[in-house]
Design a protein around this nucleic acid. Structure first.
Lengths: 109, 109
DNA sequence: TTTATTGTTAAGCATGTACTTAAGTATAAA
DNA sequence: TTTATACTTAAGTACATGCTTAACAATAAA
């Protein structure tokens, strides 16, 4: 499982701790401890979440001295957004056509 | 885990079989066998994926006779789209500000 | 009324996820 | 040079996910 890039991206977003980390990182880079501080879990647990985000290509990090600084890469976020937007748009336009058809043919009355 | 609605939505989308089912359903309703036919797995496995999509509120289904017909509900897809779009937009505007700042201050040169 | 179709349930198995605590390493501050 | 900080690794636990096959139920077609 999780071969596909979209698999990894959506799986990464399917967790509230990881979404919180993304929500923090959209405001700018942060260290591991800054990411961990608001989260109700240990630092090693945050490291695992960070690894998931990095493997999904959504976050990059670099260690300088003893501090690892993480920053968002929004490219995969864009890919996910495009996929969802396309499906939603097609689903809704299909529904619109159905509603219009029912209106025109007095369907269901 | 998976308390949050977004958790379930993103988790549902994190699987290629389930995304394929959604991609089929945006074109209109389909039966369980129609959803299963193109997928490289057994019908019981497809039923499990269908259950995940239903529990995420993305698909509704109704059984008439021996046939269960499934249709997409795009509301949760919209919720997911909004979250992703917001984060991506904020991430990019933040990056834009950084680039602009570096340009103006001759940063990094 | 036999038979085929459509779906459902149950049991089992392998792997992945989401943490924990404990014990390290490397760096920087006192 | 001792000590605190920031992260990392390892080991272990509990539960969830993604399938499988086999057996079954309900309905429709022959």
């Amino acid at each position: 499982m999780l071969n596909n890039k979209l698999d990894r991206t959506f799986a990464a977003l399917a967790n509230p701790a990881r979404r919180a980390m993304v929500e923090r990182l959209v405001a700018g880079p942060a260290t591991v401890s800054e990411l961990a501080r608001p989260l109700p879990m240990s630092v090693p647990a945050v490291m695992l979440h960070l690894k998931v985000l990095e493997e999904a290509g959504m976050v990059e990090s670099e260690k300088v001295g003893r501090v690892r600084t993480c920053r968002l890469d929004s490219a995969m976020l864009s890919q996910a957004e495009i996929w969802v937007a396309e499906q939603r748009a097609m689903g809704e336009s299909n529904l619109d056509r159905l509603v219009k058809y029912l209106d025109e043919t007095d369907g269901g009355q």
